[in-house]
Amino acid sequence: MKSLRIQLEPHAPEGHDVDVAPFLFVFPGNERGLGPDLHVADEAAFEAAGRHADGAALSLVAELTSETTKDADWIDALWTYGTVVPVYLVLDMQAQEVTVFWGPSPKGYRSKTTVPFGEPVRVPAPFDFELDTSGFGRTGDDAAGDEAADA
């Protein structure tokens, strides 16, 4: 996550903050808040009182899958983010690949691309840069440990 955060920071829209701190965002039609592993959001969204921010303030979310969260990241979060958030990154730690979704619509994301860890992937507007994924995965015995911490 540190590598992802560091790469995103210089490309974040003006007034948006890249953070991994746990924070819940609310979305229309979703009864519970979602707390992405990493988010890029308008700083003004955190000025309101309460522990939930408006999901419309997000410009990007990223989830790093685990065996226990994989279904939620690929199904529930994909649907919810796909109606509002401009860019959604899924770092699939089990498949060792990253999928970038963009173009939210009332029916979900319009576009996606997937590359294996190690290949660069384009993060579309409002970020518009090539993400280096070479340091995202682990191989061999290390893979069973804390893969998500390195991404």
Rank of each mutant, 00 (worst) to 15 (best):
G82N: 00
F25H: 01
A21L: 05
D73Y: 13
V61H: 07
E63A: 09
A44D: 08
T68S: 15
H52V: 13
D142W: 15
I6D: 13
G33C: 09
M93T: 14
A144L: 15
A57H: 07
Q94F: 09
L58K: 01
A143Q: 14
W79P: 01
A144K: 10
N30K: 09
A44S: 11
N30H: 14
G50D: 06
G35Y: 06
D142H: 10
L78S: 03
A41P: 03
R51V: 06
V84R: 02
D76A: 11
W102N: 04
A149M: 08
T139W: 09
D73S: 12
P124D: 04
L24G: 11
A125F: 02
V20S: 09
V87T: 04
V87R: 04
V85N: 01
V100P: 09
N30W: 05
V121R: 05
P126N: 03
Q96C: 12
L38S: 06
V121Q: 05
P13T: 07
G50A: 06
R51Y: 00
R5N: 12
T69V: 09
Y109H: 04
E47W: 07
P36T: 13
V98Q: 07
G35C: 10
A21H: 08
P22V: 10
H52T: 09
P116A: 07
G82C: 00
R122I: 09
F129A: 06
P36V: 13
V61P: 03
K2F: 15
P36F: 11
I6R: 12
T139V: 14
G33Y: 08
S105Y: 02
L89R: 01
E31L: 14
E67S: 15
D54V: 03
G118Y: 08
E67T: 14
L24N: 05
R138A: 15
Y81W: 02
P106H: 03
T99C: 10
E130M: 10
V84I: 03
W102V: 00
M93I: 12
A44P: 01
H52G: 02
D19T: 12
F23I: 06
F127D: 02
L34Q: 09
A41V: 07
A151Y: 08
A149T: 08
M1E: 12
L34P: 01
A149E: 09
I6Q: 12
F46Q: 00
V61I: 15
G118K: 08
D76K: 09
V40Q: 02
T99Y: 12
D76G: 04
R110K: 12
L34H: 11
L78N: 04
P104R: 04
A95T: 14
P13Q: 15
E119N: 08
L24H: 04
V26P: 00
G108C: 05
